[in-house]
Simulated assay, not measured.
Amino acid sequence: MNKLLLILLLGCAACTTQAQDPKSSTPSAPPAARSDAPSNLLTQIRALTADKTCSDTSQCRSLPIGAMACGGPQDYLPYSSLRTDEKAVRELAERYKAERQGQIAKRGEMSICRFHPDPGAVCVSGACQLGASPEAVQAR
């Protein structure tokens, strides 16, 4: 029994050593070289919307980001119309959405098909953040 256990442990150790041997593995392409690697569009969008300074909720907007397999955005980002080039950020968001839709189709991704409503954006303590606007709360 002890010999069998020893043989089994040595076999596992040999498999583990071989699997970790860097000489035996083939190098993969760096992430940036792969065609399905994420672009830096989301990073650019976040940079353009980084300054969320506001003095009133009317200056706050929510931006739909990306795409889900069943449709609709993955998420929303708050931004300040006071501090953001809205045309540029919306163009980048559209490009990112198209890119995500292409990735979804290529990979055959699926999602849970839930409705992700726009949460709106409000000015809280001088910064735009996601959340129901006061008008939406009063209408409930």
Results as ranks from 00 to 15, higher is better:
residue 65 I to Y: 01
residue 57 T to E: 03
residue 77 L to N: 02
residue 95 R to V: 01
residue 87 K to D: 09
residue 27 P to V: 11
residue 71 G to L: 08
residue 12 C to I: 05
residue 26 T to F: 05
residue 29 A to E: 13
residue 40 N to Q: 10
residue 37 A to Q: 11
residue 126 G to A: 01
residue 60 C to A: 01
residue 122 V to W: 02
residue 39 S to Y: 06
residue 26 T to G: 09
residue 112 I to S: 14
residue 23 K to M: 13
residue 56 D to L: 06
residue 140 R to V: 00
residue 76 Y to C: 01
residue 88 A to R: 04
residue 62 S to D: 15
residue 50 A to D: 07
residue 79 Y to R: 06
residue 15 C to H: 07
residue 125 S to D: 15
residue 50 A to I: 00
residue 54 C to V: 04
residue 32 A to K: 06
residue 77 L to Q: 03
residue 25 S to K: 15
residue 140 R to M: 09
residue 85 D to Y: 03
residue 50 A to P: 00
residue 18 Q to R: 14
residue 115 F to C: 08
residue 30 P to D: 10
residue 22 P to N: 05
residue 139 A to T: 08
residue 99 E to Y: 07
residue 113 C to H: 14
residue 69 A to C: 12
residue 21 D to S: 03
residue 14 A to M: 11
residue 73 P to T: 00
residue 124 V to E: 12
residue 4 L to G: 13
residue 7 I to V: 14
residue 29 A to T: 11
residue 38 P to M: 11
residue 98 A to S: 14
residue 21 D to L: 06
residue 3 K to L: 13
residue 24 S to A: 10
residue 11 G to K: 07
residue 83 R to Q: 15
residue 126 G to R: 00
residue 5 L to A: 13
residue 50 A to C: 01
residue 112 I to L: 13
residue 60 C to G: 00
residue 4 L to W: 11
residue 45 I to S: 02
residue 12 C to T: 14
residue 54 C to Q: 06
residue 140 R to Q: 08
residue 77 L to W: 03
residue 48 L to G: 01
residue 43 T to I: 10
residue 79 Y to L: 08
residue 11 G to E: 08
residue 120 G to L: 02
residue 8 L to D: 12
residue 90 R to Q: 11
residue 103 Q to L: 15
residue 96 Y to K: 13
residue 104 I to T: 14
residue 23 K to E: 15
residue 79 Y to F: 12
residue 84 T to P: 00
residue 105 A to I: 02
residue 72 G to S: 03
residue 40 N to T: 13
residue 133 S to G: 05
residue 99 E to W: 09
residue 110 M to P: 07
residue 118 D to E: 07
residue 15 C to Q: 15
residue 26 T to N: 13
residue 19 A to E: 09
residue 22 P to W: 03
residue 128 C to D: 01
residue 59 Q to I: 03
residue 21 D to Y: 06
residue 130 L to V: 00
residue 19 A to W: 12
residue 37 A to K: 05
residue 23 K to G: 11
